[in-house]
Nucleic acid binder design. Structure first.
Lengths: 340, 340
DNA sequence: CGGATGCAGGAAACCGCTTTCCTGAGGCTA
DNA sequence: TAGCCTCAGGAAAGCGGTTTCCTGCATCCG
């Protein structure tokens, strides 16, 4: 690679001058020299070494993002929001997929610290795992202590600025939609138990049941992976154990889509025989048949807000901000009141 | 941030020794010193500055990826394959979204060069734009000249190792499926004209028409954005101009999904009144109703192969490899032979 | 015409780490 | 005991930039 010294030599100036011209310092330089340097840059196809610049400037520029998996539509949307804001601020974002592996998540925090990122955004569900949470907290604390900023999306167990999707409230909305329209035997297909997202949404459902004088016994909750195939698997287990269900809530849309497909295969009509509610309002939700009634979260906006907070240098880190992200019920065609 | 010097001071050793212990050099060090240094590392929560390491080692470690948009399912899948291989090789991957903006694509090549990445992978369609192609080629050439590796997915206009999805062949398969089962008036909803992906797939369709003695006049091709809403828009235009179509090919599944939704809204039955074929076989394709007949491309595998080639230091850059990625027709429920 | 002032450009220190090269102590052989 | 070898550990030179500080020249004023 051509270096700054090469450029300077070719242009017949000192590296200092070349640097000033190339990286646009405020110091004045004659047009004559400027032209010579720029020509040399062009001829050598010179690009400054970003690492050397970072080292010399001691100025953190990139930001880190840790998500479960960018190719998961939920995180894809969030990431889009995150990236958009980061790019608007002229920041490179480094995206890391943890694939819901706590160990990998810890590793990535180290890696991002090593990369001298200005901020770390953690998106996605937290874990019910005290040891891991403690370790992660320690690593993040070490990072913030040295001026790093942390913001999280939907992880109440961690410190720092946070965007909090109304998971409990969303579960409550879904519950009201069903329990409030006559359904009594409602099943739930849930993601992994260790995820706070699962338990929060489930808690909202339970609250709705309680308030409306209904019950949601454990045998009507099936846990599986938070994806399409998990949904297919869980709905099968659920129906086999509870053939008399009239409605099902899937704790995310991916699972709902899997469930829908299985229901169709089993010849169960939605919503005539079983009403189905999803969660998240992924883009596909409106394109499946029947279009999915679901609880909407403003995913891209959540990402954007988390990144904005992370990049807001003005705000001091000691008083973390919590921004709620509202859940709204989107009524489509996969639900109907219980026909008595 | 704690530095190596801090660690060395606290452990009472020289920076040289500390470095050797921390980054596992082959040089022998007493257990006594080793223990002291590791303790200091732990106490200070020291993480080596990756940029300083990179500068000192002069060893490129990260890899760069330029895609249209990670949140687009097509690229999400490809990216998953890319990342998986990169991570398996212990490489950090830097992902850049060009949003199909040629200028941004050029910028990102510079940025990745500045980041000293070991390889750049460009995924996604090429452009019919000679000036841009030339500029991009020049930048990539400057990069490869300094030892950088380039691999591309589906961009025949660029040099370097390539994974080539059989876009033309896939178009041909889609065409045969329809023209071969009696359909004569077949419409196409296509992505932007400037993209080679669009023109390649279209070329395959035309070949099928020709071989089967049918025609595909320009008025039966509608161009729009390569996404869901583009599909909705294009199918509307297409049907308004050609009310007598019996089949439609969408040049990607996203557009097909949008078209499906519009057709349903207009009360057009698929496949009874109109057969619909998609392209790519995104995960959703099997979950819409009717499940989409589509041309499958092995997206994640394409990503994985492109990354493998990019990281294969053994192969010399002068003789680029071209690996084809096969297209296969997946027959589902959105097509049927023409009922005469 | 002499000295103060301004300003373009260069020398060199420094960012945090790696690695080569050197030093000095200890162990071995003769 | 001298001489040599081995080897752990440190000094210092980079890696490729930025930036402070300094120099030397031209300009301006009294």
């Amino acid at each position: 690679m051509a270096t700054l010294a090469d450029v300077a030599r070719r242009a017949g100036v000192s590296p200092a001058t070349a640097s000033r011209i190339i990286s646009g310092s405020t110091k004045l330089v004659t047009d004559e020299l400027r032209a010579r340097v720029l020509r040399a840059v062009d001829e050598l196809q010179y690009v400054p070494n970003a690492h050397a610049q970072l080292l010399a400037r001691a100025q953190r520029t990139a930001v880190g993002v840790i998500v479960h998996d960018v190719s998961d539509p939920y995180f894809a949307e969030i990431t889009r929001g995150l990236q958009q804001v980061a790019t608007a601020h002229g920041r490179l974002s480094i995206i890391c997929n943890s694939y819901r592996d706590p160990a990998r998540e810890l590793e990535y925090v180290e890696l991002l610290r090593a990369q001298q990122v200005a901020a770390i955004v953690l998106a996605g569900s937290g874990y019910h795992d005290a040891a891991f949470t403690k370790a992660l907290k320690a690593k993040l604390a070490a990072y913030t202590r040295t001026g790093g900023r942390v913001s999280v999306i939907g992880r109440h167990e961690l410190p720092g600025d946070a965007v909090m999707p109304a998971n409990e409230e969303g579960g409550y909305l879904a519950g009201c939609e069903l329990f409030g329209t006559g359904h009594r035997r409602v099943g739930v297909i849930a993601g992994p138990k260790v995820l706070t997202t699962t338990t929060d949404r489930l808690a909202g459902l339970r609250r709705a049941a309680r308030e409306l004088g209904r019950t949601l016994p454990a045998r009507r909750v099936a846990y599986a992976g938070f994806d399409r195939d998990g949904g297919a698997e869980a709905v099968t287990a659920l129906l086999d154990a509870n053939p008399d269900l009239t409605a099902v809530v899937a704790l995310n849309d991916q699972m709902a889509v899997g469930a829908l497909s299985t229901l169709r295969a089993r010849g169960v009509a939605v919503p005539d025989q079983i009403s189905l509610v999803g969660f998240d309002d992924m883009p596909i939700a409106r394109d499946v048949t029947p279009a999915l009634t679901t609880v909407r979260l403003p995913l891209a906006e959540m990402g954007a807000r988390a990144m904005s907070m992370a990049l807001d240098e003005a705000h001091d880190t000691d008083t973390p901000r919590i921004e709620p992200a509202e859940a709204t019920l989107i009524r489509r065609e996969s639900t109907q009141p219980l026909q008595s």
